[in-house]
Simulated scan of single mutants.
Amino acid sequence: MTRSYEQLSAEERGMIMAMKLQGSSARLISRTLRRAPSTITRELRRNGFKSDAELGTMG
């Protein structure tokens, strides 16, 4: 089985960050953008996104 991959667009990356800042889960973001959850979590990890909980700060 051959798989093809398409890179995330700048618009998708912006949407991922905006949704994550609003508290959306990676799975919700993946459903909204019609991307695999692993793609979303990889993008969040790659770009160093940390939630308030991970940073130890209060929102």
Results as ranks from 00 to 15, higher is better:
14 G>W: 07
9 S>L: 09
57 T>S: 09
38 S>D: 08
17 M>C: 03
42 R>S: 07
29 I>G: 03
8 L>S: 03
52 D>W: 15
32 T>Q: 11
25 S>P: 00
47 N>D: 04
34 R>A: 12
44 L>G: 05
59 G>Q: 15
2 T>Q: 06
52 D>L: 15
5 Y>I: 07
7 Q>Y: 08
47 N>V: 04
59 G>K: 15
18 A>E: 08
49 F>K: 00
13 R>F: 05
29 I>A: 06
46 R>V: 09
8 L>V: 04
5 Y>K: 09
44 L>M: 12
26 A>D: 12
49 F>D: 03
36 A>C: 11
8 L>E: 00
28 L>M: 03
30 S>W: 02
20 K>H: 06
42 R>Y: 06
6 E>R: 15
37 P>N: 04
4 S>E: 11
31 R>D: 12
59 G>P: 15
52 D>C: 15
32 T>L: 09
41 T>K: 07
38 S>C: 05
53 A>E: 13
53 A>C: 09
3 R>A: 11
17 M>N: 04
30 S>C: 11
6 E>V: 14
20 K>R: 15
37 P>W: 03
55 L>A: 10
25 S>T: 14
19 M>D: 02
23 G>Y: 02
51 S>P: 07
28 L>Q: 11
31 R>Y: 12
48 G>C: 06
6 E>H: 12
39 T>W: 06
